[in-house]
Design a protein around this nucleic acid. Sequence first.
DNA 1: AATGCATTTATTGCATGCATTTGTTTTGAG
DNA 2: CTCAAAACAAATGCATGCAATAAATGCATT
Lengths: 234, 234
Amino acid sequence: MAGEKRSARSEGDRVAGICTALRRAIIERALLPGDRLPEDSLGERFGVSRTIARHALGQLAAEGLVDLRRNRIAVVATPSFEDARDIFDIRLDLERQVVRRLAGKLTDAQARQLKAVVDAEHGARHGPEGASIRLATEFHVLLAEMTGKPILIRYVTEICYRAGLSLAAFGRPHSSDCAVSEHLDLIEAIRTGPAEKAEAMMVEHLEAVASRALLQSSGAKPRDLMDILAPYAE
Amino acid sequence: MAGEKRSARSEGDRVAGICTALRRAIIERALLPGDRLPEDSLGERFGVSRTIARHALGQLAAEGLVDLRRNRIAVVATPSFEDARDIFDIRLDLERQVVRRLAGKLTDAQARQLKAVVDAEHGARHGPEGASIRLATEFHVLLAEMTGKPILIRYVTEICYRAGLSLAAFGRPHSSDCAVSEHLDLIEAIRTGPAEKAEAMMVEHLEAVASRALLQSSGAKPRDLMDILAPYAE
DNA sequence: AATGCATTTATTGCATGCATTTGTTTTGAG
DNA sequence: CTCAAAACAAATGCATGCAATAAATGCATT
């Protein structure tokens, strides 16, 4: 009874709660591109009516994480290869702004907070892949949050989630080792180095992530039925 | 023209219709920051139930055009001065990408299409301010659409609308004359010039727009009732 | 006359119900 | 036995109703 009251109050908006849960499920690859998201099931699972579930799906569709077609069951979005490229291009610009604004201005407390996330990444590097990816994303989001600029934070967050989904769309395993050391280097560069150097390092990092995931798999992206069956056709 | 892709992206056609109408009202300054948007009135005006109106408000809130607080009437967003700066910073990066991709690759048909919009701007320069601003925005959106990159188009469109709203928040009149000639120069630079030159011109243009609107009015931002009434108070 | 409190009204939050549409199974003809 | 058409099941599209909350108004008290 008290629990009901508390959960209702702490989660001022139930729509936001569902969005958060689904975003996390998507970034952790518990939900994969193409997975169905019926309003009924969502509502039942989260203890709300279809109305609320529907609204949440609308929000996620606006963020590009969900595909919504009229009279059809909502599905987790399946970004195309071109989409993925464009997302990373935009992400590059946005995160470059983040670094430019933080370079040389990181407080010790902030550096510690970032390192804590990287530590968590390190600890999760042999655990389930989902946690690893989520933490890597959290690192970038936290960095953006430290700019204190709400609009920049919002766009960086959104684009990071979309980037994560894009990576999932191509089924590449997440190489956490690289991310961990690159993230550590980034913290140092942002804290001490000149803005140009930190910026260059972020560019390098993101391009590495993108090429590890996208360039290598230029042919293996969407499992096309015809491609899969080609060897069996003769 | 501009609404085709938006309506396909969103779900219910009616939700998209309301969004489009409200976006336009906002960009034309028929709706000003802080104006109330009660679900009932919207529903009645557009011939739909509150459910649909509510959903539309949710979408616009996700785009940053509407402020939605629990149990409170939705209002047109009132971007802060810092928000406006951040929006223009992001817009700069995004539109730079647009120019970079279009430089030297504009077909004659596309150039003609862009010129048609600028002509319309020219024709509207002494008419109502709203049309002038809307057309200036359409120019930038059309440019983005010519990249053929859906994600880039989407972010540029959104940020252009937010920029328009930001300008409205500071009550600056729209100087259409400058925009018209600058837009013409842009078309030429993109069509013929090297990418660097076109890019620099876009940067210059957007910085000019931002400084005309933002820098000059650093003290006159939100029309506060107390401020407005100050001269009458004695 | 100004402030705080109660009452009334306006508005949102959310679930439910019905019509419509889509997807699936069944059925029946060839 | 195959395939198409019809019947069924599942899911969405949307409006409406009721409870809860906030804004507005009026009243009383200082």
